[in-house]
Amino acid sequence: MADDKNNSPWGKPKGSGGKGSGKGNNPWGGQGGNGRPDRDRPKPGEGSADLDNVIQGFKSRVKRGGSGGGRGRFSGGGGGGDITIPKWIFVAAAVVLLLFTSIFTVQGNERAVVLRFGDYTRTAGPGLHFKLPPPIETKIVRNVTSQRETRVGVNSTAEALMLTGDENIVDINFTVLWVIKDLESYLFKVDQPDDLVKSAAESVVREVIGNNELDPIITTGRQELRGVVTEQLQVLLDEYEAGVLVNDVQFQKTDPPAEVEDDFLDVVNAQQEAETAVNEARAYRNTQVLEAEGTAARLIQEAEGYRDSVIANSEGEAERFRLIYQEYSQAPRVTRQRMYLETIEDIYGDADKIILDNEAGNGVVPYLPLDKLGKPAGAN
């Protein structure tokens, strides 16, 4: 056990009876016989300085630094030389730091608002700008051209189910595409502008859906609803001064609830079949009506044409008789003879008759080719 006590790195304690006791075994310097370190510690200038003197000397020299006529002076212990730093280096560093914290650049797709002690001062556009260093003035930079998306009805059933005007339920999810229009209003006039866009969009869509029936919402009315919702949402956000510009509202789904989707599809199919039958009947009716109208128009035109023809013929015949009467009044005998001959020609022009005059020959039997009388001229 005695050997264990003598294993101390500072040597054997005083009074242990071993060699080497006394000064020289303490790491802070020699100790007197009574164990007090101050008694045998070397005085300044005698031998090497201990750690306490080095620290104390460094602190005293730092306090005295800068008294050398425009230069900062740092001196180390142990007789080393002083290190002097010119004051202009500190001034230059302060200027660089001031410029680094006061000059800023805004990109073409960005806008920056400058705050002075937390209050809005101005909005900076693209380019190089200057502001006072923090904490006097600070800046907030946002991208105002990139399009942001707000989805409604995607992750929440409560958001997706909406009541239509004919008391049906429709499952809707849609996306609002928007950008920042006024950065000051976007940051300071509303709280949580992104959440405001979502809440306002859901409110407007519910109002529009409630004013329309289910059939146009899920079939052909999407485009019309899209324009109405976009316009009303922009008006509402402008009333709130949200600083937001709505570019578009896109409906991804407008379906009946999943629980009744099959039954609803059956109803829709039946309605479509009924509408198809009605359309076919209307087409047949239109065809028949058009054909009847065309036939009636044709008959009317034929009758009018016949009437005009009869009238024209009658007028022509009357005019012809009037002219004949004028000629007859001038030469009655010649006119009668001519009319008689023309009448006989009209009557017997196509008849197969042979007329024998009394002067053809007395007592002579004429030869009549009876086998050729009924044949046309030129036939064998």
Score class of each variant (00 low, 15 high):
Thr84Trp: 11
Thr121Gly: 06
Thr101Phe: 07
Thr287Leu: 05
Val62Asp: 04
Pro9Asp: 06
Leu187Lys: 01
Lys131Tyr: 10
Arg142Asp: 04
Tyr348His: 07
Arg282Lys: 14
Glu345Leu: 01
Thr254Phe: 03
Asn143Glu: 05
Glu302Ala: 12
Glu207Ser: 05
Thr276Met: 11
Leu99Tyr: 05
Tyr348Ala: 11
Asp182Lys: 00
Val179Asp: 12
Arg285Ser: 11
Glu359Gln: 13
Gly69Asp: 04
Arg333Leu: 09
Val95Leu: 02
Arg142Ser: 06
Glu213Pro: 10
Leu132Glu: 01
Ile324Pro: 01
Thr121Leu: 15
Ala94Gly: 10
Gly305Ile: 13
Ile354Lys: 15
Gln330Cys: 00
Gly305Glu: 13
Gln271Phe: 14
Tyr348Arg: 08
Asp82Ala: 14
Tyr284Ile: 14
Glu345Ala: 08
Leu196His: 05
Asp50Gln: 07
Phe104Met: 11
Thr254Tyr: 03
Ala258Val: 13
Gln288Tyr: 07
Lys63Phe: 07
Val205Gly: 03
Ile354Ser: 12
Tyr367Pro: 06
Thr105Trp: 08
Asp195Ser: 15
Arg336Cys: 08
Gly108Asp: 03
Asn212Asp: 13
Leu214Met: 03
Val204Gln: 03
Tyr306Pro: 04
Gly349Asp: 01
Leu97Pro: 04
Glu224Cys: 02
Thr138Leu: 04
Trp28Glu: 10
Thr101Arg: 00
Pro369Lys: 00
Glu359Lys: 14
Thr150Asp: 12
Gly47Pro: 04
Arg206Trp: 05
Asn358His: 00
Ile83Asn: 09
Lys19Tyr: 13
Leu245Asp: 12
Phe174Lys: 03
Gly69Glu: 06
Glu167Ser: 04
Asp238Val: 06
Glu184Leu: 04
Asp262Tyr: 09
Ala377Arg: 14
Ala201Lys: 01
Val113Thr: 08
Gly57Pro: 01
Tyr306Ile: 13
Thr276Glu: 15
Lys5Glu: 14
Gln330Arg: 10
Val144Gly: 03
Ser146Lys: 13
Glu315Gln: 00
Gln107Ala: 15
Lys59Val: 13
Pro134Met: 06
Ile89Lys: 03
Val205Asp: 04
Ser60Tyr: 14
Val179Pro: 02
Gly17Phe: 02
Lys43Val: 03
Arg36Thr: 08
Gly243Ile: 00
Gln272His: 09
Ala292Val: 11
Gln337Asp: 07
Asp266Arg: 10
Arg151Leu: 15
Asn380Ala: 12
Gly70Asp: 02
